[in-house]
Design a binder for these strands. Structure first.
Lengths: 231, 231
DNA sequence: ACCTGAACACCGTTCAAGT
DNA sequence: ACCTGAACACCGTTCAAGT
């Protein structure tokens, strides 16, 4: 460490004012996203919370996409660490799915962020975790990609829907249950001839446990994967 | 028709200038979205294309969400009409999936729009089409929702990823193949100990046929659904 | 090297004023 | 009834000027 940096560091520590850093910015961004939603993350609001100027942030972050990606990655890393058990592949895949489901439930903006930057770290981490377990399941090499990408697409699909639901609920400032009741009402008023299935399913809609539904979908795909293996 | 409206209508027809209408606005919005992407849809650009003022649009459309939803619905209706064959349920479900895949490939913004407003018409139409065929497949009532929502989530998940890929490619102004090669390169440079699966799959990435992968995922879920049924 | 904050080039949306 | 277009309250990003 250079003498200059030491002095500056000491001075800042004495004053109790740590220097602006990438980590501090990302952490403040997560706070802002959790409390005010995606639309609450603004360079001006972020600067205010960090007691600095809006332009200062650009010294540590390249742009808003970078910021959102880093915030998302931070949550995904935490979630996947939770699922890092020593269970069998099937159980492990369920744990990965649930860990991500719960993380997105707690931080809805993560669901949208995952779809925003395909192929970047957060998605790659999920791909890796899922792929390793699918491989451990004994799926042959030529079916590995189809099985893994199906699971990944399903997980990201549920993530996106959950995020949208949460965003809508937040925008209208209503709780999940009220939102589902409103939706059930709308669906119930659709044309009976054109939408029989939707109407039939509308009544049960508010009673569904999204988490259980999500797990049922994972299980369905796993049945498909293992049925193929032994077929 | 009132005398006033008749006169106005006649005058406009004679001048070859049809009045601004919801349909004309939505059609212009689709053009704009197809040619300039999601960021190209602006009330100012839309007004310019329609040779009117920005505020005039609000007389026929409530806000940007309404506009995007209506544009999305228009494409989904067309796509689902294509898949309305007389084939068996399994084949019909594949046709629905492929019709949506192709529509989103042609109009990438539809993928994002589908995730934006959960429970609204475009998604409900897909839910209905899929649900009817799952029912026709002979799935028992208590498994109907799990099977249908799994298929729906998977379809929406792939839609979102495809949309993001297209958006990224458009932003960087590169073709799909170049994008996948860049991604394969990045993935190949990941840490070998932490990302063995991703590294192994990176090389094959640019060779994959997304459309075939999508269909393989549908088949996997269908295997899971029918295995359950007879289990 | 790092930070400040005014300025720039945009947005969606509103609304008095027109026809 | 329908349209106009300036105005309002925002954005992300840049950049001269400071320390």
């Amino acid at each position: 460490m250079s003498r200059c940096a030491m002095i500056q560091n000491t001075r800042r520590t004495q004053r109790g004012e740590p220097a602006l850093s990438r980590e501090r910015i990302i952490s403040a961004a997560i706070d802002l996203l959790d409390t005010s939603g995606e639309s609450g993350l603004t360079f001006r609001a972020l600067a205010a919370q960090l007691a600095t100027g809006a332009g200062a942030i650009y010294f540590h972050i390249s742009d808003k996409g970078d910021l959102l990606g880093a915030a998302c990655d931070s949550i995904v890393v935490q979630a996947l660490a939770t699922a890092d058990t020593h269970a069998a592949p099937q159980e492990r895949l369920r744990a990965i799915g649930l860990a991500l489901f719960d993380a997105i439930d707690a931080h809805p903006w993560v669901g949208a962020a995952l779809s925003d930057a395909p192929g970047t770290m957060p998605t790659v981490r999920i791909l890796e975790s899922v792929g390793q377990q699918v491989q451990a399941l004994g799926v042959p090499d030529d079916a590995l990609w189809a099985a893994t990408s199906a699971l990944l697409s399903y997980i990201l699909g549920v993530a996106g829907q959950n995020a949208a639901n949460a965003r809508l609920g937040q925008a209208r400032n209503i709780v999940r249950e009220d939102f589902l009741h409103q939706l059930a009402n709308q669906w119930g008023q659709l044309d009976a001839a054109a939408f029989p299935f939707t109407r039939a399913v509308a009544a049960q809609l508010p009673l569904h446990d999204d988490r259980a539904d999500f797990l049922a979908g994972i299980d369905l795909i796993l049945v498909g994967i293992t049925a193929r293996r032994s077929g």
